[in-house]
Amino acid sequence: MSRMSQASPVPAIRIRGLMKRFGDRTVLDGIDLDVRDGDVLCIIGPSGSGKSTLLRCVAFLDAYDEGEVNILGRLIGWRETPMGREPAGEAELAAVRAPLGMVFQHFHLWPHLPVLANVTLALRLARGLSKQGAEETGLAMLGRVGLTSHAGHFPDQLSGGQKQRVAIARALAVRPKVMLFDEPTSALDPELVGEVLSVMKALAADGMTMVIVTHEMGFAAHAANRTVFMDRGRIVEAGTPQDLFRAPQSERLRQFLETWRERAL
């Protein structure tokens, strides 16, 4: 089994014909996308284009309606039966989801737990590590984001940038294969964006596979190896950052980049 998966290039994430509706509004309208090992893929696009929903469907935080999302070759969220699809059980969903780590726009740190406990809770409860083992790993992860000295603080006592770095450490602690970032810097004061992006750059340099929904065009241009432009629930353009930023093919992307450049001035 393991030899087979090594031999055949199973993409980390494989998306085919993905459809998602909220009521009668179609938010994702047939998405096809592969994320390969080592990819740093940025998804850009205007508000409401479906970027965040795409990420949430990949993680099955939102249930998609049609199509497939495969994580390391396994369908997430649904079980195919002769009678059609039915929702996967809790344990199966957790197992398929396990290779994914997620970082949210609003951090979602647990406010009643100190920073270290935020990082170690899943290690203890989901991975069954001892208190000591979990704390060693937890401190090492906090070290990676430069916050070892804040292990005993509570989330309220941190700046937005520090909170997001803790959230990254928390996600990394359970050793995900792919990290999903949902607008990780959009809730931050401008002067705090840099510290989070540099942690993410270091992660990319370590070879982590990453999918990043972002408005940080500079980051998309320099840290990503692939960029996807979405609009109205579809992928309009995909390619290298150079392709998209220097030679946009579609009118929509040209407009989008134009607006962004005007704003940047």
Partner: peptide
């Protein structure tokens, strides 16, 4: 978001 973060980390519903 509190429980979404926990689900992504593999915590059970009970936990």
């Amino acid at each position: 978001g509190q429980s979404e973060a926990a689900r992504m980390l593999g915590l059970s519903r009970r936990a």
